[in-house]
């Protein structure tokens, strides 16, 4: 059963230079307990997507088209009051920097009890018991004393554990994690990854993981989406894409990883840089940086072609698949 279904989602920003669209034509589904990774470079629109799913965009940004179906309700058109009852309880979010998500003048316990009592009618005492139990779940040592500490008294890894505990507080069906390990050191990152994975599997929680790190994504998710300049360019099973990427951009991203190349040799690089949103090239947005760019790529935006288990937005892949179909 589909837990989350995003259909042709489009986000626009009103700016002085006119309307820009940091997100165009984004569609995907996520089943219950499924883990989906979204990868892209800065400016690809992945964080905007996370905010748009929860309808958290604030002016000048707004959802200008499409639907976000969660549990048969369209979050894109729901009233603010109904949205508030879903955010935090049914769908939780984990952000990159725990120091900015946690309130520095409230103890961890106060923050956890506050959000519990905002959604459920329970006493402070009961809420505290649940909070301590959740802190224990994320392996915080001596949770009963930690609960009365302020965020600044905890280390970075500890703080991120607290935000995960807060996300799990109301037993959500879906967690959206926006770069949850980017601010952490590698040894701490490894701990947080395995913790988050264990919790998602044992509680059957769906996960949308937004990251720029292909290696983190490959460890945590079964399916993945590659975004470029506000659009999905490739979508499919993580293993299949990493082993045999079809879109030239995905291939470029994988080949640029230092760990896959022979030490001391030149890395394969993608020329150029990610385009600004005011100057997205016509046709396929990737065409100026693509080594396989053809005439059609500069004129027509590619549609999605199914190739294996993946769906790819590329004219070259489309031609390849079509010619293979004719051969048969």
């Amino acid at each position: 059963m589909a837990l989350l279904e995003v259909r042709n989602l489009e986000v626009s920003f009103r700016t002085r230079e006119g309307i820009i669209k940091p997100l165009r034509d984004v569609s995907f589904t996520l089943n219950q307990g499924e883990r989906l990774g979204i990868i892209g470079e800065s400016g690809a629109g992945k964080s905007i997507l996370a905010f748009a799913i929860l309808n958290l965009l604030s002016r000048p940004g707004y959802i200008s088209g499409g639907q976000v179906l969660f549990d048969n309700q369209d979050l894109a058109t729901l009233s603010e009051k109904r949205l508030r009852s879903i955010r935090g309880s049914r769908v939780a979010m984990i952000f990159q920097d725990p120091m900015t998500t946690l309130n520095p003048v409230m103890t961890i316990g106060q923050q956890m009890i506050e959000s519990l009592r905002a959604h459920r009618k329970i006493s402070r005492k009961d809420a505290r018991v649940i909070a301590i139990q959740k802190l224990k779940q994320v392996q915080i040592p001596s949770p009963a004393t930690r609960i009365d500490q302020y965020p600044h008294e905890l280390s970075g890894g500890m703080r991120q554990r607290v935000t995960i505990a807060i996300a799990l507080l109301l037993d959500p069906l879906l967690i959206i994690a926006d770069e949850p390990t980017t601010a952490l050191d590698v040894t701490i990152q490894a701990e947080i990854i395995s913790l988050l994975l264990d919790l998602c599997v044992s509680n059957n929680v769906g996960l949308v993981l937004i990251t720029h790190d292909l290696c983190v994504l490959s460890q945590m998710t079964r399916r993945m989406i590659v975004m470029y300049a506000g659009r999905i360019v490739e979508q499919g099973p993580t293993k299949e894409i990493i082993n045999d990427a079809q879109h030239p951009y995905t291939q470029g991203l994988i080949n640029a990883l230092p760990q896959l190349s022979i030490p001391g040799t030149e890395l394969k690089q993608i020329p150029g840089a990610v385009p600004g949103l005011q100057h997205v090239p016509s046709g396929c947005a990737f065409n100026p940086r693509c080594e396989f760019s053809m005439d059609i790529c500069t004129r027509v935006e590619p549609g999605f072609t199914c190739s294996g288990g993946c769906s790819v937005a590329c004219h070259m892949v489309e031609e390849l698949v079509n010619s293979m179909g004719e051969d048969l």
């Binding site: 720029h212 991203l253 640029a256 890395l267 394969k268 690089q269 840089a273 990610v274």
Partner: peptide
Amino acid sequence: DVSIQAQVLN
């Protein structure tokens, strides 16, 4: 960014 890292490292 990842694709730019490779350029600078090269």
